[in-house]
Design a protein around this nucleic acid. Structure first.
Lengths: 126, 126
DNA sequence: TCTATTGTCTTAGTTAACTAGAACAATCTG
DNA sequence: CAGATTGTTCTAGTTAACTAAGACAATAGA
């Protein structure tokens, strides 16, 4: 079961935060096809956002073909995201963890790490 | 000189995008103390956002102590961000680029890479 | 001093995000 | 079947983000 946590005042709309967290869970394999998402009322109770906001997030995921809502029973993962298998992912995660450890010992903060990755991924363009 | 590019419809407010881009440029050393930011009117002309929105972004950066606005001459970088020196940064960037190349050849998309980094940085917690 | 440049402020209005509370509809479970 | 659970819809309202256009104020440079 996925746990949502909505950061009020981060500037990012709540329904986008919810959608991102589902997509991220799909990419990392935490959610797989057939899994059930928390009910709308669950999310309302745990995250404090309104039911309409949760519904908006779920509806966008449904429009993207990622989940399927079944009235009376819940919202279920329909399709996966990300092209990597866990077998590919695990060694890459280990290598990345080693690099992160090195970066941190060089004094880099998390934000520095993110900035560096964005730079590398975008090909160093400005 | 930094070039801003505001993505309308990304959900993230424009003034936050501007602020993030300045902070990122500071972390990567693209902006250094003494450098001048684009003028408010420049940003208006190139990015299409309103002057008040640019002003809001610059004012937040000023409140954070990162820049200093001088009426009549411009807005200047006051302080730097990030604790790493370029000498530390360069080898780390090279290693990260190698890892990214490996990840991509394993079929990972950019979003997969971001998700993996977030997971590693947060310590694997759920 | 004069002029252009730059940051700043004011006022007014629009739009999207979000809240609030209630009700309805389909499904599952006992 | 009966009751609980779940997704869904509705109406109304609030708030923050953003737009628009103009004017003012301080500084730099000729």
């Amino acid at each position: 079961m996925v746990e949502f946590h909505v950061d009020r005042g981060s500037g990012l709309p709540a329904y986008l935060q919810l959608g991102q967290q589902v997509r991220e869970a799909l990419r990392l394999g935490w959610l797989r096809p057939g899994d059930r998402l928390p009910t709308v009322r669950d999310v309302v109770a745990t995250s404090g956002v309104n039911a309409n906001t949760v519904l908006k997030a779920y509806r966008e995921l449904e429009l993207a073909g990622l989940v399927e809502a079944r009235q009376g029973s819940g919202t279920f993962v329909k399709s996966s995201l990300g092209s990597a298998t866990p077998e590919d992912l695990d060694p890459l995660r280990a290598k990345l963890a080693a690099w992160v450890a090195e970066a941190r010992s060089a004094g880099l903060e998390d934000e520095d790490v993110y900035a560096l990755l964005r730079e590398v991924l975008s090909g160093g363009e400005r």
